[in-house]
Design a protein around this nucleic acid. Sequence first.
DNA 1: AACAAGCAGTTAACCGGTTGTCCACGATGG
DNA 2: CCATCGTGGACAACCGGTTAACTGCTTGTT
Lengths: 349, 349
Amino acid sequence: MDQVSPQRKRAGRRPTIADIAKIVGVSKVSVSNALNGQPGVSEATRARIAEVAEEIGFVRNSAARALSGAKSSAVGLALARPARMLGTEPFFMELIGGIENVLSDASYSLALQVVSDHERGLEAYRRWWGERQIDGAILVDLREDDARVPALEEIGLPTVVIGHPSGSGSLTPVWSDDAAAIRETLEYLAALGHRRVGRVAGLTGLVHTSQRDAAFAAVCRELGLEAAPVIHTDYTGMEGARATRRLLLSPARPTAILYDNDMTAVAGLSVAQEMGLRVPEDLSIVAWDDSPLVQVVRPPLTALTRDIHAYGAHAARILLALISGEKSEGYEDAAPQLTPRGSTAAPPA
Amino acid sequence: MDQVSPQRKRAGRRPTIADIAKIVGVSKVSVSNALNGQPGVSEATRARIAEVAEEIGFVRNSAARALSGAKSSAVGLALARPARMLGTEPFFMELIGGIENVLSDASYSLALQVVSDHERGLEAYRRWWGERQIDGAILVDLREDDARVPALEEIGLPTVVIGHPSGSGSLTPVWSDDAAAIRETLEYLAALGHRRVGRVAGLTGLVHTSQRDAAFAAVCRELGLEAAPVIHTDYTGMEGARATRRLLLSPARPTAILYDNDMTAVAGLSVAQEMGLRVPEDLSIVAWDDSPLVQVVRPPLTALTRDIHAYGAHAARILLALISGEKSEGYEDAAPQLTPRGSTAAPPA
DNA sequence: AACAAGCAGTTAACCGGTTGTCCACGATGG
DNA sequence: CCATCGTGGACAACCGGTTAACTGCTTGTT
């Protein structure tokens, strides 16, 4: 009866299990058990409860449930980027799409926060965890000596790191073999006859950047290629253009350039064409990450294709497994595949 | 004392206000009030409580707070897109960046769900609301006769619609004057001497598409321009290329084309160049939405610039106001500004 | 002097589920 | 015929924080 006069009976009060209990004539507990498939409720009552719940439009109050120690059915992802740069990165949207796909099948939702740097990102994870908002976390943009790794290890939050195991500590990594992709690309360029290959790389400090740097140097040496200087950028078109200009004006101008993302590659293409170089006759271009962008320019760019969507999906799947208590060694995703298009050819004689 | 023996005393129990209360020697309520800046607590006690809270690393349990009818400090955004298409749309990432910026200052987080269609999107909003996961919602991709509008009106969730007031019902709209932008563009093209202008539009059924369609037709008539057929696309490069091809092969080939987003414009540029047309000498191109993408191609594209980041920020700010009970008429953002670049010039004689 | 008002706190109840404990009832078994 | 067991279900306590109502006590008013 005390249900009838709460201090502030809101007009559109949402139905609770107590309402169902009253209607069916059983206790709250039975309703809870019935709705959760717990034993101790007869089939008949169970059916009746389900029916009434449906009828009055009952929705579980996840706050109440979480309060009683249950899961919160959400995972967190803090993206450390200057917000204005996000739009230029198809990568993350695709990744998020893949993650979401898996999560929503499990009725999990994704808490997303865009922060300015890793420090604030860590704060976000801490807050989410403190408030029991999330059951697990996904870490991206792994850096060398990333402070977030030990921090998340300490609070014991199930976490999947998108990045190479070498930097993920005891957290579960999901990664791809970038070195293999570099090798495939350089072998391809060497076979075409290129002897001097440049590289426009991404942000220094990121684990995958230095891994690619290392692989690039190693494979060049191995294949007897002359490695032009590696120039690091922030992935924007502007820096990609500048880096390309520097490479093309250097005394030892490369005959092919490998870019770390699609945007810098497209910018590089424009710069080359502006400088009167024909692509691919005078300069070959390879972009890391296939995307509509690299396919829409002329010539369409040879690219390292990977299924980013699947990548995100794998990460999410493993995270869900971790949350449900399973152990996981992580997952090595397929290495990026070289997709030759019109931007690569034999170097000028 | 009952604190000491809960049925399952987890090892790393997180501190609660009861712990603080015990240490400081006051009641839970005083702690709650102190921490929330409520009156009824002396400055001294307040300081002491803050100190202890900091010391033992207290974090509010938002589930418990939400259970007591408080806000959940999150807003929801369900994005209805085939997940794989997201990456191609800088627009949304920028928008989300802007939203996030404002939200995080208010310690709000954004619940994001990528769904396949509006129906599933509505489900997401319903679930979030039912579970008290969100205090407000943001609606994008407004369609004509959008079923989500009456649904959200009915459940009474504070909602901001990104889209024109004509379709937002009693929900609060945030929009920009697309008609003005169309007018500015067409006047500019007319002044250059163009007489026949084509348009590669976005998805039919979206409110802003038909608004632009209508404005385009009206202004063409007004200026005495011959409107080439409007071709609708799904915003992808592929359809943009196809549409461009159709326009350029039509008997009444336009001398200028206005595209509804950056991707189709860039695709159109490539198609034109492939067909041997020089841009801007033979064909002028204008892209809706400025982005790194349109600036990185050659020639860089004349574009309708708008500050999407600010757009998202405005929406978020208004939503927060709605949540705190204020009324709002909505907000008309600045109309997109024409930014002339190298892709527009006088038509061939 | 008497009373209202304000301040700093307290206690109890409550939000909506979940969990541990206990009970009544009927069937089973020896 | 009585002890045992299994089953559907009830009851109370609890999760952690918020709100309403109330209690002393100090201060200001008239």
